[in-house]
């Protein structure tokens, strides 16, 4: 159980950041493209997605929860 608990602790810390970059970033980018919305600051959709996804992930990681 201790290995499991340790792995779970690491995943809890890294998980949201990974999720923000690996899934939320392309999701945000593709949502902007699908809705034909202008991307803030004139950035590429994926650049904006990575910035927002990473930020959300870091915030969630620090707070210990998404919502």
């Amino acid at each position: 159980m201790s290995n499991f608990a340790r792995s779970k602790g690491n995943l809890n810390a890294l998980g949201p950041v990974l999720f923000g970059v690996a899934f939320l970033a392309p999701l945000i980018a593709q949502s902007f493209e699908a809705a034909s919305l202008p991307v803030p600051l004139g950035l590429d959709p994926i650049t904006f997605g990575l910035a927002l996804g990473l930020s959300l992930g870091v915030i969630a990681s620090l707070r210990g929860r998404w919502i």
């Binding site: 990974l18 999720f19 690996a22 899934f23 970033a25 392309p26 999701l27 980018a29 593709q30 949502s31 699908a34």
Partner: peptide, 21 residues
């Protein structure tokens, strides 16, 4: 999460979000 990531970076992020996540 591997499947979601692979789909998202292949251009199917919205599909992955709306069919599974």
């Amino acid at each position: 999460y591997a499947i979601l990531t692979a789909l998202a970076w292949s251009g199917f992020a919205i599909e992955a979000a709306l069919i599974w996540w």
